[in-house]
Amino acid sequence: MAHQFFFNPFILDNLPAPSTGFDVVQDLSEPRLRMYITSRGVKTFFVRHRSHGRDKRIIIGKYPDMDIEDARAAVADALARADAPKNTKRRKITFKKFVDLYMTARVRRVAASREKLVRSINLHLAGLFDKNVADITRDDCVAVIDGIRGTAIRGRMQELLQSMFSYACDAGYAATNPIDDLPKVVQTRRVRPLTRTSFYRLMRAIKSVKSQNMRAAFFMLVYGFAPKSQIFAMQWRDLDFNHDTWCERPLSDAAVVLLQDLPQNGRWVFAGRGRGHLTDPRRAWRAVAAAAGVPNLTMDDVNKFLMRQLVWASDREDLRTNMNNLLTELMA
């Protein structure tokens, strides 16, 4: 919190400079007026303004070049100018080009997460690409959002559009945010359908998969006690059959038997198309889930079902024993 006192020349002239960074003080006569003092002794009047959920610092002037009374009088004008609607830029910009600007200015993600976001935008928001940002209406946004399957991704895309148009307003590409008053997408929590009975049916359905590689990958979702992203990216070099471990984590007995029966060709345990590993075999999994009588079952549901029942142990051998006991109990 900023130090508060009545600004006067004697106090401001004798304010000490911080050793590093800057300090902030606040005027009691005009509480919206603040001053920050840098480590070099530079003193600047400013006001804070919150717009679209973001705090901004509006500089009024430097002290002592600007008098205290002049700074107090300038507060109202500075805030009024900040609240005034911005004129849209004369040069129009399409939504597709604007997305590139938004990604550069506002998105801070690692490369893999950034690529995933770009794929989602290209898949779900392509209907807006050819429109000028300033011409996009609420109905245009509603049509795009309503065309997205799944309430979870629909809600995320609506939040993303909200952020994009807020930035467009700040940058002057749009006068208003067309979805400011759009109700949020109602999301219901999905009930995970796997039970002990359906688990038994799932194992029988996996056993009937014709492809050895796919069948082994699906069985490892059960025996490996790990999410699908880690199972499918498993590499032979990470496996130690002398100690029955995978990246220092214990392997269940069923996992060891399964892996030792697979041909050790190439880098990946579960090879995919080209030189990569298996990523997301949705079509094959849907067939397995349908055969098991749980059509809305996802691959990660299997791991979560097992991890909820697994008794954790810090000792590797104790954890392996708990894995084996749980699998024996489920498949009895």
Score class of each variant (00 low, 15 high):
Asp135Ile: 08
Leu79Thr: 12
Met35Glu: 09
Asp23Trp: 01
Val142Thr: 11
Tyr102His: 10
Ala271Asp: 07
Phe219Ala: 05
Gln158Ser: 02
Ser39Asn: 15
Ala171Gln: 14
Ile93His: 05
Ala233Arg: 14
Lys97Gln: 10
Arg106Tyr: 03
Gln309Cys: 00
Pro250His: 09
Asp300Gly: 04
Ile93Ser: 10
Leu221Arg: 03
Gln4Trp: 02
Leu259Asp: 07
Arg108Gly: 00
Arg189Thr: 13
Arg192Tyr: 04
Glu248Leu: 14
Ala17Lys: 11
Gly53Thr: 11
Leu125Thr: 01
Val144Phe: 09
Met1Cys: 09
Pro9Cys: 06
Met103Thr: 06
Asp135Gln: 12
Leu161Val: 08
Arg286Met: 12
Ile11Leu: 07
His124Asn: 13
Asp77Pro: 01
Asn296Val: 07
Arg283Cys: 03
Leu327Val: 11
Asn242Lys: 10
Arg138Tyr: 12
Arg106Gly: 00
Gly224Leu: 12
Asp244His: 06
Phe225Val: 03
His52Gly: 08
Met35Gln: 11
Pro31Ile: 02
Pro250Ala: 11
Leu258Phe: 00
Gly266Ala: 01
Pro227Phe: 02
Leu12Met: 10
Ile60Thr: 03
Asp100Phe: 09
Arg149Ile: 13
Met35Arg: 12
Ala82Pro: 08
Trp246Ala: 02
Ala152Gly: 08
Asp300Thr: 07
Thr38Asp: 10
Gly274His: 10
